[in-house]
Amino acid sequence: MKLRLTLVLLAALHAFVVFAAFFAPYDYAEQHRDYPFAPPTRVHFTDAAGRFHLRPFVYGVTQDSPGGDYREDRGRRYPVEFFVHGRLFGAGAPGILFLWGSDGFGRDVFSRVLYGGQISLLTGLVAAFLSLSLGLLWGTLAGFYGGWVDRLLMRGAELFLALPWLYLLLAVRAFLPLHISTTQAFFLLVAIIGTVGWVRPARMIRGVVLSARERGFVLAARGFGASGQYLIRRHILPLTWSVVLTQATVLIPQYILAEVTLSFLGLGVGEPVPSWGNMLADARQYHTLIAHTWMLAPGLATVPLLLGYLTLADILLERSGPGY
């Protein structure tokens, strides 16, 4: 029950982000220079006369003065249209529909959070894949063959763990070029985050492989003359899947946060491409945040996602029992 609920939550969040081009009413770079820092648009069902409309609508908004408050202009009414221009919804032109308000350039925060999630989520997923592949490779080799491979792994792992991981992450980032394009920045982030975090999964997988190596059926297969390669592929690797899966649910949220942190500090993906980190950097000036609370949206968006992944990790850990 709990598992199903968590999976549904995660699937829904991922769907929103992956199909951002459909769910978001605007493109992430689309600017509405007349509406900087517009508050979230209210969607109405009943008009001023109290009549109910099946099709929701929005009022036009006007600003008292540049930088001033926004007011709804009851005279102008724009219906909310569904399935227009290949998107789920949008306001009839020239009305605007900012579900979560707009930023300083008049860009729709809701759309940008959805698009920004693509960078943040993809970084997390790909980096976790990278980490786990490295961990699986090293962990299996070290655990299965032992000897100098094992000693090298354990010593190297200690070196990696001797640094607090954010310091390690930033240190690796420090030695790489600062001013790079968005695509480069993305691959750089994935590479850094992925390679910095391989140690823990590698150690865990090593532990599993060590115990798997002595299992009866593995010894039997070895007695029949099975080669090391065959043993790993056929008997050892299948035993590591549950650890790999659990580790994935632990690593992905951690790596999403790592991307958010790096981009927030200006060391990751930069404008105009949104990521939750660089969007949240806009909310860092507190006068901006106090006057425009909706700028916090990208930060709040991480909470359900993390909750989903952490709950999933808990469930998997409970299932695999103590010892992991």
């Binding site: 946060l257 942190t261 949240l280 930060g299 709040l300 909470v303 909750l307 952490l310």
Partner: peptide, 13 residues
């Protein structure tokens, strides 16, 4: 569980 899902970045801001 909810507290655990709030990143330090967000609470600090």
């Amino acid at each position: 569980a909810i507290l655990l899902s709030i990143p330090e970045l967000l609470s600090a801001v």
